[in-house]
């Protein structure tokens, strides 16, 4: 069982149920980066090769916002207005909110998955049937400009402080019987040295 070491490690972490799927399924809550690193050390080879050979299909919860195949610290799909330079997230093709330029002037840009924590809130109560509490939302000002809201990898705000450096990570939120995974982009505190 190739992934057993990784799975063991993930199960020792706080788990977060799939916020979209059924709440009865206990789900791993594991930054994909850990999996890549484990694979790379196990095989002694590039994780790209390892993935081609062994990884099941992966689907992003928000396929238009990021790639499910990104590696550590995935970028976000944003937009930019060629007329005025305004950078925005989420991407849209309706027209520029800043200058009103038409869709032809809007282009897709990738926004680095790095930013600064502007605020955070741990949600204790939620009416959504499939949303398990607590979970924590962060308001992050991306280094590339836009302020975005994101779910943080930690359920609670323990250890968080406004001004913390944050980075994107992909989190596995569901795995089906064939091993196909659903992944979601969340944010975590950027670790020291990263």
């Amino acid at each position: 069982m190739r992934f057993s070491a990784v799975i063991d490690r993930s199960e020792s972490r706080p788990s977060l149920s799939d916020l979209r799927g059924g709440r009865d399924t206990p789900l791993r809550f594991e930054p994909i980066a850990c999996r890549f690193m484990a694979l790379a050390s196990e095989k002694g080879s590039s994780y790209h090769l390892a993935r081609e050979a062994t990884m099941p299909n992966r689907t992003a919860v928000h396929s238009e916002l990021y790639s499910p195949d990104s590696n550590d610290n995935p970028p976000l799909n944003g937009g930019k207005c060629r007329a005025c330079g305004y950078v925005f997230f989420p991407p849209q093709r309706y027209g520029c909110e800043s200058c009103g330029a038409p869709p032809e002037k809007l282009e897709a840009v990738q926004l680095a998955g790095r930013g600064t924590l502007h605020s955070y809130a741990t949600v204790h109560l939620h009416m959504g049937k499939d949303i398990e509490t607590p979970f924590t939302i962060g308001l992050i000002v991306l280094d590339d400009g836009p302020a975005i809201s994101a779910t943080l990898t930690n359920r609670t705000d323990e250890g968080l402080a406004i001004g913390d450096r944050m980075k994107s990570v992909l989190v596995t939120t569901a795995t089906d019987q064939e091993g196909n995974e659903t992944v979601e982009l969340r944010f975590a505190k950027a670790g020291a040295g990263k």
């Binding site: 916002l65 849209q92 605020s119 955070y120 809130a121 949600v123 939302i137 809201s149 994101a150 406004i162």
Partner: peptide, 24 residues
Amino acid sequence: KARMRDLVGSRLVPFTHFALLAQE
């Protein structure tokens, strides 16, 4: 219905929007 999903969707309801403002 504008088909502009963000990363948080229904996880961020008004009381959390204002909880973020409160923390800040």
